[in-house]
């Protein structure tokens, strides 16, 4: 089949336009990508993970100077999936975001809650752990929700966030919880074990080991939820997407559950 000269010219022009478009797009993409930390990580084979290693069981430094904890293992698992070496950078918590903005880090992984004030500056991953205040009660007499604490005695560590949550329940919802504030979590737990309190309020991180033996259960409705996430720079959408994919894969294959069991006893 033969084409007329005019049709040929139009076809050649169209193909040319498409080629020019593809070349321009490639140039634009490469310009965007240059700033994406994903490519730096791939080129260097090093993932720089920032953390404030003073917060066990998520991140701390052991007696031999090694980084240990849930987030440390998580970073290692991500590095393994990507085939890159993980280098930890230990920075005080209030300096982590600036270190990311200054290009000293690729990722923050440090028991980090999402900060809605910073979403113009950083990209957050999907949550990989759910912290927050929960209700713990004996398995034989469980408490599902805060409403069931009305007029009940509840043990809590003095000054803890759970203490403030109980004051808030009384102030805002009039539950008349009888707050038994104890100097430490251990003493609050002893109060519960002695039957002086109907329940205990504490952080989910502290609650998980208590439930390991089966003697206690965590209420279905938490008092507060603090999802932990990873953060990358706003100019690294590819790294953020790869991070989400890696976290999802680690969730699917049971790695996250295993880490939680290793570091939190459940």
């Amino acid at each position: 089949m033969s084409l007329s000269l005019g049709v040929r010219r139009i076809a050649i022009a169209a193909v040319g336009a498409v080629l020019v478009g593809l070349i321009l797009r490639a140039i634009m993409v490469s310009r965007i990508d240059r700033g994406d930390a994903w490519y730096r990580v791939q080129e260097t084979g090093i993932l720089r993970v920032g953390m404030d290693a003073s917060f066990p069981p998520f991140e701390s430094v052991d007696a031999d100077g090694r980084y240990i904890g849930y987030d440390v293992d998580l970073a290692g698992a991500i590095g393994e999936r990507w085939g890159v070496e993980v280098r930890f950078v230990n920075i005080a918590f209030d300096g982590l975001y600036d270190a990311l903005l200054a290009g000293r880090l690729d990722v923050i992984l440090s028991a980090l809650p999402q900060d809605p004030l910073l979403t113009r500056d950083v990209l957050y991953s999907k949550p990989y752990f759910l912290a927050g205040q929960v209700i713990v009660a004996p398995s034989l007499n469980p408490v599902s929700s805060p409403d069931e604490l009305r007029d009940r005695a509840v043990a809590v560590e003095l000054g803890a966030d759970g203490h403030a949550e109980l004051v808030r329940l009384n102030r805002d919802r009039g539950l008349d919880v009888h707050i038994l504030a104890r100097p430490s979590l251990q003493e609050a737990l002893a109060t519960l074990a002695a039957g002086e309190a109907h329940a205990l309020v504490c952080d989910r991180v502290d609650a998980l080991p208590l439930t390991a033996s089966g003697g206690y259960v965590i209420g279905l409705v938490p008092l507060s939820t603090d999802p932990y996430v990873a953060a990358t720079g706003i100019g690294s959408p590819r790294l953020a997407a790869e991070l989400d994919d890696a976290l999802e894969a680690l969730r699917q294959d049971g790695t996250l559950a295993q880490m939680q069991n290793d570091w939190l006893g459940r």
């Binding site: 918590f93 912290a131 000054g159 966030d161 808030r168």
Partner: peptide, 23 residues
């Protein structure tokens, strides 16, 4: 003004919603 939801909150004397801590 808003909870940091990290250990930083435990430097404070009052919660963001104005509940006084024991200190």
């Amino acid at each position: 003004p808003v909870a940091q939801r990290t250990y930083q909150d435990r430097f404070t004397f009052v919660t963001p919603d104005l509940i006084p801590r024991p200190i």
